[in-house]
Design a protein around this nucleic acid. Structure first.
Lengths: 125, 125
DNA sequence: GTCGTTGCAAAGCGTTTGCAGCCTA
DNA sequence: TAGGCTGCAAACGCTTTGCAACGAC
């Protein structure tokens, strides 16, 4: 990430404005408004570079392609509404200390995803 | 899943014998010992059929292709070794009751994945 | 002017589908 | 024998890579 190009400015701007994790395709569509010739290859390369330098955090859900959100948030996990498919952040984390791995296993990290109905959809049905 | 063919017997047998979730490729490799002409397409079709009828549970980890294990096990989660990439089962679950979703959200399910070193790889380094 | 960056196109990779032939029931 | 099942190959969607042209510094 040595040079500051129009494409990279556009990609960063889209991510900053979103307020939720975006897929590469959403990023491509959004950034093309400011860099019309932008192609998928540049998006993927830029996302990898931004993630490598820590500016960006990949958010991967089981069975779904990765999304990305600006880094710097506190430790949190995600809640996915099964009805509207939106992704929410869940503050804090209470399972780090209660891990129970088999004997001899060393735990270095963990990932938690909650599934259910968000407040809006839970009211609906 | 109306007919009982050599290919399907082989696939079921491999899954039952594994004791851990297997990827389609692991299943293909294992089942070929009993059905040498077996191809990927049949594996995928059979896995989908077995999952649809409830005999099989798909295990999807963030950012990775799905694995499969026989259904009917008690509630458990998974541990993924970052060195040998194998997936293990972790007995029990201590987070179901400590979920802390935003107000109004209804939790219906959850997924937890632990990352680290398995006993064998932890010894290695 | 250098050389990091871009964009097209092509290649990967895992998975799905079309279709003719096979084999279980 | 009927029709579900198989296996090859081709198609698929997403992501990565090769390479020549471009443009930030």
């Amino acid at each position: 990430m040595e040079r500051d190009t129009r494409q990279r400015r556009a990609i960063r701007k889209v991510l900053e404005a979103a307020g939720r994790p975006l897929s590469p395709q959403e990023i491509l569509a959004g950034a093309r408004r400011q860099a019309p010739t932008l192609g998928p290859a540049t998006v993927y390369r830029t996302l990898r570079a931004l993630a490598d330098e820590g500016w960006l955090t990949p958010v991967t859900l089981p069975g779904e392609p990765a999304r990305y959100e600006p880094a710097g948030k506190t430790h949190h996990h995600h809640f996915r509404c099964q009805r509207c498919d939106r992704l929410f952040e869940v503050e804090g984390c209470r399972q780090a200390s209660v891990a129970k791995a088999p004997r001899g296993f060393v735990i270095e990290d963990h990932e938690v995803v909650w599934y259910g109905r968000c407040a809006r959809c839970a009211r609906g049905s």
